[in-house]
Amino acid sequence: MLKLQENRYAVVDAYYPQAPVGFISEQSNVIARQILRTRRPFIAKITDSLGNELFRVRRPFWWITSSIFAEIDGKEIGVVHRRWHLWRRVYDLYLGNKQFAVVENPGFWNWTFTLKDIDGNVLAEIDRDWRGFGFELLTDAGQYVIRFGDVNPGSKTGPAKMIKDLEIGRPLRLAERAVAVALAVSLDNDYFSRHGGWGLPFLVVSE
């Protein structure tokens, strides 16, 4: 029987992909991992490259639809709720009690998840299986890029020039970006982490 391990990810900046700027490490019960698998409850720490905790994400056990919470110093700052749909992948993102974004992925083989506000303006984008910078040499797990947009094209250097600019309605605040990272962790567990192990880095494109 395959043993489900705790998920771990490296976080890298597209401008300097050689060295991780942070890590995401899951903490969960070994028995729950084997029995509940992708529905297991867990906490994941997001740390900088030195191991200092920045924030956490917490995902309780779920049956029909999943939720994941972003927390700083034990205080909940935001949440992502997955909304049930027969084939589409729909997620609602909240900061406190106020919804600031929705993701309505068409499903099937589309692995681009675009965050939009109530008026349909793009706020950020998460792509799965993005290939670049030779990361396929590091692991055979899935790759992700989180694009926050509003990049100054003139400041791009090296491999970062290959990333197409993302036009956004407004830049996300830091707390909203933490919720977006929580969404990325939830997406990986909802659709891709069937057996656990080391995931490939989230690629954060900064301004």
Rank of each mutant, 00 (worst) to 15 (best):
P171Y: 02
A184H: 03
G158N: 07
A175C: 02
F135G: 07
V181F: 12
I146Y: 07
E136H: 05
S193H: 08
P153M: 08
P171T: 05
G142A: 12
I146P: 05
L137T: 03
A141Y: 01
F148H: 07
P171Q: 00
A141T: 08
D190C: 05
G142H: 14
G142E: 04
E167K: 14
A184Q: 02
L137Y: 09
K156C: 07
L138G: 04
I146L: 15
E176C: 01
R173E: 13
A180S: 14
N152F: 10
R147G: 10
F148R: 12
R147H: 12
G149S: 11
L138E: 15
L187H: 06
D188K: 09
E176S: 00
S186L: 15
S155C: 05
D188L: 10
Q143L: 12
Q143T: 13
D190F: 09
T139D: 14
P153L: 10
G149M: 02
D140N: 10
K156L: 15
F192Q: 07
A180C: 10
P153S: 13
I163P: 02
A184K: 03
E167G: 05
S193K: 07
S155P: 00
Q143G: 05
P159F: 10
G134P: 07
K156H: 05
A182M: 08
P153H: 13
A178Q: 15
I163L: 14
L183I: 10
E136F: 11
L138N: 11
A184D: 02
R170A: 13
L137D: 12
L137K: 13
G142L: 05
E167W: 04
P153K: 14
I163Q: 04
A175K: 11
G158Y: 01
I146W: 01
P153N: 10
V179K: 07
K161F: 03
D165T: 05
E136A: 08
E176A: 01
P171F: 00
I163W: 08
G149K: 05
L166A: 02
R170G: 00
R147E: 03
L166F: 04
L172W: 08
Q143W: 02
D150N: 15
E176T: 00
D188M: 11
G149W: 02
G158K: 09
M162L: 12
I163V: 14
V181M: 09
E167M: 06
L137V: 06
D190P: 08
V181K: 02
T157R: 13
V179C: 03
A184E: 08
A180Y: 06
A175G: 04
A160T: 03
G154E: 06
A160R: 13
P153Y: 09
Y191D: 12
E136G: 11
A141F: 05
D165R: 13
V179I: 10
G134D: 11
A178L: 09
A184L: 06
E176L: 00
F148K: 12
G158L: 05
S193P: 01
D188E: 13
I146S: 01
V145F: 05
Y144P: 00
R170C: 08
F135Y: 08
F135K: 02
D150G: 14
R147S: 08
A184I: 04
D188I: 04
S155I: 07
G169Q: 03
F148M: 11
L166K: 06
S186T: 02
D150C: 11
G149P: 08
N189M: 14
F135R: 02
K161L: 12
L138D: 13
